[in-house]
Amino acid sequence: MNSTIYFIRKAHLPKRNNRGYGYIFDDQNPYELQTYKLKEIEYAIFYDDRHYCCTNKLSNFIDGYLIPFFFDEVYHYKHITIYRRAPNIKINGVYKATYNFIYDIVDPAKWSLNEQGGDIKAILEHNGHKKVVQLFDNNEFESVQMTDWFNKQGSGTIELYFESTEIEEQVSLRLESNSETGPYICIKSSKFMYYNGNQFITICDAQKDTFNHLRIDFECGNKTYEGLNQDEFFLYINDIKYGPFIFSEDINTVNRFVIGTSSGFKDNSVYIDAVGYSWKGNYNIGDNKQEIATG
């Protein structure tokens, strides 16, 4: 179902225009409005498969997050479905981030996807996290990869939650620009490792089937971001600081973040959640450790 317009019956507020319904979202920030108005809703009426004054972002939010977690279907007739707000709503596992994927139904929006070796999609929940991205690799000769492009950055911090069900075959996280790679981090042979341009060097042991909170501080120039020298980075794994480590190659700036599997990685998955960039105005370092309160 692609819900694209809706009316909300307000249980305890005055009727609007004597018609007894009103809107609870706008097209810009539907999630933020939902968090404090949801308790006022008794019933929701959704018009299916139509696009009346509704952005794709809002439509995806309704289908991919609002309905699965907050409403029970009561009645469906032709293009209209009536829902009742589920009782005792309290959703955990949604985190503040540049990308927390709550607006994504299938493909993670704004990321470039390479699915030659499998499938990449947003799923409802995994391992205590709601709305995460799954990279499923089912081909030992190909890989899957997701890439986010952004304006050139000389230094900064990236944070995310990262889990792999396979830790023997390589899965990597890289910061790149053009054909060059700066910080190159991976899991393989049951270890977190980094590549220094010549060889992979062990950082610490890795565990599968568990979310790790990762933080990458990087400095491409001479501004000594977080105390780093040129072409160096720190890696925090679950708040433990490692490094500084040197880049894979000398690089002046980075403009993309790449997460991908490798050949040999087969019939296993990587899970990503709550990706945050320090240079984005709506994100501060550490924000993705905070759940967004609902209920």
Rank of each mutant, 00 (worst) to 15 (best):
I5G: 02
D107C: 02
S3V: 01
E168Q: 11
W149S: 12
I246N: 08
T294G: 09
N92T: 08
L33S: 03
I158K: 02
T253E: 14
E169K: 10
T165N: 10
I89C: 10
P30I: 00
N139S: 13
E226D: 12
S177Q: 11
V133M: 05
A122C: 15
D63V: 02
G118T: 09
E125I: 01
C220A: 11
T4H: 00
H76Q: 06
I8S: 00
Y43E: 07
G286Q: 07
Q28N: 14
E125W: 06
S269P: 04
G64K: 01
I285V: 15
D107F: 07
G128Y: 10
P244Y: 04
C53M: 14
K37A: 05
Y75G: 03
Q153N: 10
E142M: 05
V254K: 02
R215D: 08
F257N: 05
Y194A: 04
F247Q: 07
E291R: 11
N196Y: 10
T165I: 11
R215M: 15
P87K: 06
Y83D: 02
K110H: 15
Y194M: 08
Y75E: 15
A86K: 13
L175F: 15
G276Y: 06
I185Y: 10
G93A: 07
G117H: 05
N288M: 11
N56S: 12
S155W: 10
C186W: 04
R84M: 09
K121S: 13
V171F: 09
I203V: 13
Y195G: 02
E159K: 09
S189Y: 10
Y23W: 09
V106T: 13
G197Y: 09
S248H: 12
F234H: 08
N198T: 15
K289Y: 13
R84G: 09
N2A: 08
N178V: 08
A86N: 06
E125D: 12
D48S: 06
C220R: 04
I41N: 02
P68M: 00
C204R: 15
C54Q: 02
Q116L: 13
N222E: 15
G156M: 06
K191S: 13
C54E: 00
H12W: 10
N252P: 08
T98I: 03
I158Q: 06
H213A: 11
N284E: 12
Y36V: 03
L33A: 02
E249S: 12
Y6M: 07
K121C: 08
T147Q: 08
I102R: 00
L38A: 08
S248A: 15
G227A: 04
Y21N: 01
R256C: 14
I251D: 03
F70N: 07
D239F: 12
N178C: 06
E142A: 14
I272S: 02
A293H: 05
E125H: 12
A293D: 14
I158E: 07
V254S: 03
I203M: 06
S179K: 12
D267F: 10
L235D: 05
L235N: 07
M146C: 13
K110S: 15
I259G: 01
R16E: 10
A109M: 09
N114T: 11
T35F: 01
F150E: 05
Y65T: 12
V270K: 02
H126M: 10
I251N: 03
N151P: 08
Q230C: 08
G182E: 05
E166Q: 14
F70L: 07
V254C: 10
T147G: 04
Y75R: 09
P14M: 08
T35M: 06
G128M: 09
Y21P: 00
T224P: 00
G22I: 00
